[in-house]
Write a protein that binds this DNA or RNA. Structure first.
Length: 807
RNA sequence: GCCGCGGUGGCGGAAUUGGCAGACGCAGCAGACUCAAAAUCUGCCGGUGUUAAUCACUGUAAGGGUUCAAGUCCCUUCCGCGGCACCA
């Protein structure tokens, strides 16, 4: 009969959350001689919907690590904040006529209450908010530094324009030709935009991946996104003019096969050659048509190539000296390479299609396919032909030879190209950081003085976007009108704001020193805490936030603000939690699970255990209400171990091996994203406890500490009921003894010709002869050996004994 | 098309990296307790061989291979997911 009250999470969870906060157990102490550990999860965007069940998955995972590290003697920083600028808030504010500031405040309060009910060990004294002027002061400061170093510049460019949000988007924010956020139509619109020169960092962003511990798929995705390719820039002269066309190619070895050229409709050379192009009207019409299409529409028309020949224009192939016609076509993009290509229809599918359509010559220069039927693109498998001085070479040798040939004559040079483009940094929106620059007729763009930072968002009634694509701030005349900090003349403020990615590009630095007025963080703190030891976040941020923040960090490193080249030492990523119907959780599908409901019915500890046990941390997995029940059952069983306690302050003989095995398994699994099997090991241990029916205090305490990172409340409560006044969070993580993880006797399988025919019990380090003797004396195995000839015997100690027989 | 990841019971998933496939949990079935239900506890739970224990065979998307031994390594094919995509 139980003498203890039954497990009631509702009361104990609140009790412990209060006590932790009162005693500030998770508040970080600076200047500490313990080793530091900085665990970071992506701070959420406080949307109106509140937390859903996907949020706690990564939070719990790193909370587990943070709690374990504290018990292992580390000084742990595990902070939380709000990435609160952004369109949904602004849209909601417009729709409901509530100021975005108020919307943000309410949403943050809701999010915070929800997070606190889950018992995460965040240091709430370091909470930050990107919309707080004392925070965005430093976002603006970093921007000014970028401007100062020439990494921010304004440019007339065709940008991706979301017709629904009425806002310019970066390439990263365009998904399948639509707006990443609203799915609305995206068109090309020429606008004067602030740009950040992330391309200047392309090489380092690739190379320094070698120095960090990111999961491999994050690295490859970043590399692909940056898209480095090495090749040759080759000059083609245009007959009868001083002009030349430069092209970028990764296959200079096929230069002899280049039979015509294609340039992008936006190519600037078109204007220079205007007088020589006989059909300029037709060319101009094509340019106009192309301009109307978005990038997406252009690529939709993959199958049917269009184009116009530039009549009267001839280019010269620099090696074969043959004349080549020149065309414009929208399959050549101005934004990659030089905006012009040499067409090698024999060995490039797109060029082949174009050549077929317009009846252009197709020349085979690599043997191996049939260029009359299709382009032979697997060039590295072939041999060069019809190529004069590089004939009979392998393509890779051909590249080297022709590169030297071109370089010697000044006709080409080695060149590296990236797919990565500069970051479009302007947004025509209200709810973002104002760009702290002033436009002066005489002085151009002038930064506002540092001491005037933060440049605060003006408080206004109307922050609706304008139809002409101007920022809502442009309507606030007395804010826009200012004086030039440089010459004192009347000038205009920049009215665009920064994208949401600005504030999140450096937030991990602010946590180190959130109230510093003098700097984004003090040098001492930056030196102590950098780099972030473990950063977990969504895969969807790999080419956006993660790349942007690495870029900013490298810039800050270059100007001696931060001491490390990279911000994050380790990056992991969690899978999504899907609805019970295996679909992505969404309001419209009605399959959203609210963590509040789970906490209310089962308790926060159950939710935490479930989210860690649910499956492979890195994969998406459907929610299962029954699975939650099972985890609550587990905690009920943990609770009732109280009734089985017996005297003894050590591991009992029966459990010693199991205890050491479990400590090892759990300790390692928590480190390796294998939370599910770690918890499974604890469940197995509980099952052992029940099988034995008696548990020593030490055994129980060990279980509680191992379980504490996942289920902090119940373990605190049970710890206290054991009679301790000091919290379980103050305890040391248990260690295991490797020798004691090995059982005295183990079972090994005996195979005959690879089939298991029995098992025998032996000591783990039993000699082969001993085992062999036991097997040959065993009645059940004997029959398989009678009258047969033993060909071979393989013994794997501790595992298996395989006998190969004939006959 | 290219790059990356994956395919194991009714379900989520394990498998010390080549060594007894299916740990742990869910669901299901049977039993105990109960007037009854819930909760709890105990047992069973990949398939086939008509039932059970035993046993035998078979089984990790499909086909082939390497090996004493393959979910794991190699080749071919199919399917699913994620990213990129007229990138020269």
């Amino acid at each position: 009969m139980s003498t203890n009250p039954s497990y009631n999470p509702e009361s104990i969870e609140e009790k412990w959350q209060k006590r932790w906060e009162e005693k500030q157990v998770f508040h970080v102490k600076e200047s500490d001689d313990r080793p530091k550990f900085y665990a970071l999860i992506e701070f959420p965007y406080p949307s109106g919907q509140g937390l859903h069940v996907g949020h706690p998955r990564p939070y719990t995972a790193l909370d587990v690590v943070a709690r374990k590290r504290r018990m292992q003697g580390y000084n742990v920083l595990f902070p939380m904040g709000w990435d609160a600028f952004g369109l949904p808030t602004e849209n909601y504010a417009i729709k409901n006529k509530i100021h975005p500031e108020k919307v943000t405040k309410d949403n943050v309060a809701r999010f915070k209450a929800q997070l606190q009910s889950l018992g995460f060990s965040f240091d709430w004294s370091r909470e930050i908010n990107t919309t707080d002027p004392s925070y965005y002061k430093w976002t603006q400061w970093i921007f000014l530094k970028l401007f100062e170093k020439g990494l921010a510049y304004k440019q007339e460019i065709p940008i991706n324009w979301c017709t629904s949000c009425k806002v310019g988007l970066s390439n990263e924010e365009v998904v399948q030709g639509g707006c990443e956020r609203c799915g609305g139509e995206v068109v090309q619109k020429v606008k004067n935009q602030w740009m950040l020169r992330i391309t200047e960092y392309a090489e380092r962003l690739i190379n320094d991946l070698d120095e960090v511990d990111y999961i491999e798929r994050v690295k490859t995705q970043q590399k692909n996104w940056i898209g480095k390719s090495e090749g040759m820039e080759i000059k083609f002269t245009i007959e009868g003019t001083e002009e030349a066309l430069k092209v970028f190619t990764t296959r200079p070895d096929t230069l002899f096969g280049a039979t015509y050229m294609v340039i992008s409709p936006e190519h600037p050379i078109l204007n220079k050659l205007k007088s020589q192009i006989k059909n300029f009207d037709e060319v101009h019409r094509y340019q106009h048509e192309a301009a109307k299409k978005s990038d997406f529409e252009r690529s939709e028309l993959v199958k049917d190539k269009t184009g116009v020949q530039l009549e009267g224009i001839r280019a010269i192939n620099p090696v074969s000296k043959e004349e080549m016609t020149v065309w414009i076509s929208d399959y050549v993009l101005m934004s990659y390479g030089t905006g012009a290509i040499m067409a090698v229809p024999g060995h490039d599918t797109r060029d082949w299609e174009f050549a077929k359509k317009f009846n252009l010559p197709i020349k085979e220069v690599v043997k191996g396919g049939d260029v009359t039927k299709e382009a032979f693109t697997d060039v590295d498998q072939g041999i060069l032909i019809n190529s004069d001085f590089i004939n009979d070479l392998k393509p890779q040798q051909g590249i080297e030879k022709i590169n030297n040939w071109l370089t010697d004559r000044g006709l080409g040079e080695k060149k590296v190209n990236y797919k990565l483009r500069d970051w479009v940094f302007s947004r025509q929106r209200y709810w973002g950081e104002p760009i702290p620059l002033v436009d002066c007729e005489d002085c151009g763009w002038v930064p506002i003085p540092e001491k005037e930072l933060p440049l605060e968002l003006p408080k206004v009634e109307n922050y609706e976007p304008t139809d002409d694509g101007e920022s809502p701030l442009a309507n606030i005349k007395d804010w826009v009108k200012t004086t030039c900090p440089s010459c004192g003349k009347e000038a205009r403020r920049e009215t665009d704001t920064m994208p949401q990615w600005a504030g999140s590009s450096w937030y991990y630095l602010r946590y180190m020193d959130p109230n510093n007025d003098e700097a984004l963080a003090s040098k001492e703190r930056l030196d102590y805490w950098l780099p972030v030891d473990w950063y977990n976040g969504g895969m969807e941020h790999t080419t956006l936030h993660l790349l942007y923040s690495r870029f900013w960090h490298k810039f800050l490193y270059d100007i001696n603000v931060v001491p490390t080249k990279e911000p994050y030492n380790k990056r992991t990523s969690h899978g999504m939690i899907l609805g019970e119907n295996n679909e992505k959780m969404s309001k419209s599908k009605g399959n959203v699970v609210n963590p509040d409901d789970i906490v209310e019915e089962f308790g926060a500890d159950t939710l935490r255990v479930y989210e860690m046990f649910i499956g492979d941390f890195e994969k998406s997995v459907p929610w299962s209400q029954n699975g939650v029940k099972g985890c609550r059952r587990f905690l009920d069983r943990v609770w009732k171990v109280q009734d089985m306690l017996v005297e003894g302050d050590a591991f009992s003989k029966d459990l010693e091996v199991k205890m050491h095995q479990t400590i090892k398994k759990v300790s390692e699994d928590y480190e390796n994203l294998k939370y599910n099997t770690g918890i499974a090991a604890l469940m197995t241990l509980i099952n052992e406890f029940y099988n034995l029916g008696r548990v020593t205090k030490t055994e129980f305490e060990t279980l509680l500490i191992l379980l504490n990172p996942v289920a902090p409340h119940i373990t605190e409560e049970l710890w206290e009921s054991l009679g301790y006044s000091e919290g379980i969070v103050e305890q040391h993580w248990p260690t295991w003894n490797e020798e004691k993880t090995v059982a005295k006797f183990i079972e090994i399988a005996v195979q005959i010709n690879g089939k298991v025919r029995g098992t025998i019990e032996v000591e783990p380090d039993a000699k082969k002869e001993t085992v062999e003797k036991m097997i040959k004396e065993s009645e059940s195995i004997k029959e398989y050996l009678d009258n047969r000839q033993i060909v071979k015997e393989i013994y794997v100690p501790g595992r298996i004994y395989n006998i190969v027989v004939k006959g």
